[in-house]
Simulated assay, not measured.
Amino acid sequence: MKYINYDGSVIMTGDRIAEALADYAAVLGANGRTDAVHVPTIGADGAIETSTVLVGPASELVLTQAPEDELDLEDPAFIRRLRDAAAKAGPEQPLNADGRAPFAGVDEDPQPV
């Protein structure tokens, strides 16, 4: 599980969902685009909810480890939609600290952890 810290709010979701959102935000930022993404999350009572996150060039998402839970939220269809959207967001790819484009393979299927 991961917490997504965003603009003073903290939401909890599955590892791969959080990582796909961060990847998508980076691609959108590189291409000067934004999107309102409806993210499957886990509420304080443990119920599955949806949180809307605006991502784009000014996004400052911080992912942190949440306590492990038997209910690691997974949503392969959501992750696939983000990966497909990232592939269509534009030609520019963000660079990591090594100068490489770490998200060049965003169109690949998410792999089990």
Rank of each mutant, 00 (worst) to 15 (best):
Y3I: 05
I4L: 04
N5S: 12
G8Q: 09
S9G: 11
S9R: 15
S9M: 15
V10K: 13
M12T: 11
T13V: 05
T13H: 02
G14I: 02
D15R: 10
R16S: 08
A22Y: 06
A22N: 09
A22E: 11
Y24L: 06
Y24D: 00
Y24M: 04
A26H: 01
A26D: 05
A26L: 06
V27F: 03
G29W: 02
A30G: 03
A30W: 00
N31T: 05
G32R: 09
G32F: 09
T34R: 11
D35C: 08
A36W: 13
V37R: 00
H38M: 13
T41D: 02
I42H: 00
G43K: 08
G43V: 05
A44Q: 14
D45H: 08
I48T: 14
E49C: 11
E49H: 10
T50N: 10
T50E: 12
S51D: 10
V53H: 02
L54F: 13
V55I: 13
G56C: 07
E60W: 08
L63F: 07
Q65R: 14
P67I: 08
P67F: 12
E68D: 14
E68F: 10
E68K: 10
D69L: 12
E70D: 13
L71M: 15
L73Y: 02
L73W: 02
E74K: 06
P76M: 07
I79C: 01
R81I: 03
L82N: 00
L82K: 00
L82S: 01
R83T: 03
R83N: 11
D84S: 14
A85V: 03
A86C: 07
A87D: 11
A87C: 11
K88V: 06
K88Q: 13
K88W: 08
A89E: 01
A89S: 07
G90I: 13
G90T: 07
P91L: 11
E92Q: 10
E92P: 01
N96K: 05
N96C: 08
D98W: 04
D98A: 14
G99E: 05
R100Q: 12
R100E: 12
A101F: 06
P102C: 06
F103N: 02
G105K: 08
V106D: 03
E108N: 15
D109L: 12
D109M: 11
P110Y: 07
Q111G: 07
Q111P: 04
Q111T: 12
V113A: 13
